[in-house]
C-alpha cells in the first residue's frame, strides 16, 4: 500500500482515519447521517440558481457538522478542489454568456457572476456534505447502514470487495506502469502497449479472484448464500431520531423559512 503514491488515495485514506474518531456524531447510526445528507442535498439543489442568500445560510450545516465531528476543513477543501474543475468551467461559461446587469444602470456585477458564484457555492456545499457523510460513518459503517436500508447484500458485497481490492490492484497497476516507464524513455503509452498492460492487470485480477474465491470457499462460502455479508449491527436509537428530526427541521427552515432575512431586516433598521 505504501507504494501507492496517488494523491486521490491519500485523500480517501484520510477519510478512513477521520471515520474512526469517536465523537458523539460518529456514534450516531450511519442511517441518520445518510438521511440528513440526502435532505440537505435536496434542499441545496432545489434552490433556484440565483438564490445565493439561502446558500450562505445552508452553509451552516457543513460548518456545524465539521466542527462538532472534528473533521478538519482542509480535508473538505481538498475534496472540493478535486471535484471543482468541470464546474468551474460551467461557472466561467455563465460569466461569459450572461452579461446582463443585475441592477439596471450598473453594468457590474452581471447576472452571470451571480450564477457562477451560486454554482461554486453549490459545489462546495454538496461536496462538503458528501465528504462529511463519509468522514462520520466510514465506508464500512456506511455500507452496513445501507444494508439496514434494504440495499441488496449482493450490492454491498460488491462494494466491500471492490473497495478492498481497488487499492491492491491500483498498486499493481502503479508497479506495472513504473516498470514500463523505466524502459520507455518517457514515451507515452500507445494503445497497443496499453492493451497489453491492461490485459496483464486483468489477468492478475482474474487470478486473485480465483484465490479469493478459494479462500471464501474454505470458510464456508457456498456461492449462493450471502449470509456473511448481511451484517447490520446497529439499531436506531432515540438520539438518532431526535438528531435527524432536529437537523431536517433546521434544513427545512433554512430552505423555505424567512427567519434569517427577517433578522437581517431588523438589524438594518437598527443601523443608522
Amino acid at each position: 500500500m505504501s507504494q501507492c503514491t496517488s494523491n486521490l488515495w491519500s485523500a480517501a485514506l484520510h477519510a478512513d482515519d477521520l471515520a474512526r474518531r469517536d465523537t458523539w456524531l460518529h456514534r450516531l447510526d450511519p442511517r441518520t447521517h445518510v438521511t440528513i445528507t440526502v435532505a440537505y442535498l435536496l434542499a441545496v439543489l432545489s434552490l433556484p440558481l440565483h438564490d445565493l442568500s439561502r446558500l450562505i445560510l445552508l452553509a451552516a450545516y457543513p460548518i456545524w457538522t465539521a466542527l462538532a465531528g472534528g473533521v478538519p476543513f482542509a480535508y473538505l477543501a481538498r475534496r472540493v478542489a478535486i471535484a471543482a474543475p468541470w464546474i468551474v468551467l460551467v461557472a466561467v461559461s455563465w460569466i461569459w454568456l450572461d452579461r446582463r446587469p443585475l441592477v439596471p444602470g450598473h453594468p457590474w456585477p452581471t447576472a452571470g457572476c451571480l450564477a457562477a458564484a451560486s454554482l461554486l457555492a453549490r459545489l462546495a456545499l454538496t461536496v462538503a456534505a458528501a465528504s462529511l457523510l463519509l468522514a462520520l460513518t466510514g465506508l464500512s459503517g456506511l455500507t452496513s447502514g445501507l444494508l439496514g436500508m434494504r440495499v441488496p447484500p449482493l450490492c454491498v458485497a460488491q462494494l466491500w470487495i471492490l473497495h478492498r481490492y481497488a487499492l491492491v490492484l491500483s498498486d499493481e497497476a502503479a508497479r506495472l506502469l513504473r516498470a514500463r516507464a523505466l524502459r520507455s524513455a518517457g514515451r507515452r503509452l500507445t494503445w497497443r502497449q496499453a492493451g497489453t498492460l491492461l490485459g496483464q492487470l486483468c489477468v492478475r485480477a482474474f487470478d486473485r479472484a480465483e484465490r479469493v474465491h478459494r479462500a471464501m470457499e474454505m470458510r464456508g462460502f457456498d456461492g449462493h448464500s450471502l449470509r456473511a455479508f448481511e451484517i447490520c449491527t446497529r439499531r436506531l436509537r432515540a438520539t438518532d431520531l431526535a438528531y435527524a428530526s432536529a437537523m431536517i427541521l433546521w434544513i427545512l427552515w433554512a430552505r423555505f423559512g424567512d427567519g434569517a432575512a427577517g433578522l437581517g431586516r431588523r438589524l438594518m433598521q437598527l443601523a443608522p
Partner: peptide, 21 residues
Amino acid sequence: DDQLFMPTVWDDVAFGPRNLG
C-alpha cells in the same frame, strides 16, 4: 490479501462462523 476481503478485521474473522450459521 487473498484471505482478508472484508472491510474490517472483525468481519473478516467472523466470515467463516457466520457462513456456518
